[in-house]
Amino acid sequence: MKIIGTGSAVPSLTVTNDDLAAFLDTNDAWISSRTGIQARHLLSTESLYDLAVDAADKAIKASGLRTDQIDFLLVSNVANQHVTPGLSCIIQKRIGVTCAGLDINVACAGFVNALMLADSMIKAGHAKNILIVCAEEPTKYCDWHERDCSVLFGDGAGAVVLTEGTAFKDVKLTMISDRDVLYYERGMETTPFEQHYVKGQPLVMKGKELFKTAVTESAKDIQNVLDYNHLTHEDITWFMLHQANKRIIESIRHIIGGPEEKYPTVIEKYGNTSSASIPIMLDEMLRAGKIKAGDKIIMSAFGAGFVSAACLWDWEF
């Protein structure tokens, strides 16, 4: 499997740390030093569906394929206004594809998990050209009266078109059942028989615990992929890590090794865009000409679950 087209889209509204400090008990120095985030883009006039379609359209255009050549649509999304139908169904018509599709929710690790599914489907002959769209609006499940979560997130979408090839080399997925470190509960309709009604509540995050687990498990995934493929950090051109917190990226680098330049970031301008963070960064790096044929790339992400995942590419165009 290889990637032949990428696209991304973020909302038009940019919100800086100073903008947040106007109504939250925080400031630019605190947010920047602890997260690396300077700004994020938030949905205001457009919808998540607009972003998803925009990213998908760009990826298909970049791939050189026609929409009728896309065989399958895989969408990664944690939550959006519609519990049902799935986001893949909602955006299918606007993208202009007619193929089947499905949604996955593997939190911020959704993109790497979707890659694993796409690779399996292509190898099994179920599809030849697959469109993955990661579209997320995490700012809609934060409590905007407190600073712990709301300063971290941004909205956005990233998309890739995949086809047969040999660039995708390996993937490692991890799941450790531990709901309490990070969760968002939606309220559901009650019934006359319900005895344990749970009212929804915004995102809950135990920051320090999450930080430790994220660093420990992501480093394990990456080291596993390196070891299994008889590689060291020196063989890797780019470590493209989930953009949740720059300090987490630095800690993982401290364990895995390699210079800071090999660990690109876009978190400064977008914040944490959940499963869209890696495809957005990939799109920007490809369009900037930073990725060359033969580059060895590790992608690694983690999220609520606790889940984490890492994969290896030997890049080809």
Partner: peptide
């Protein structure tokens, strides 16, 4: 050190 440095240090030392 700030509070996050401390978390990072404990991860690195434990490992």
């Amino acid at each position: 050190a700030d509070s996050l440095d401390f978390v990072e240090l404990s991860v690195l030392l434990e490992r």
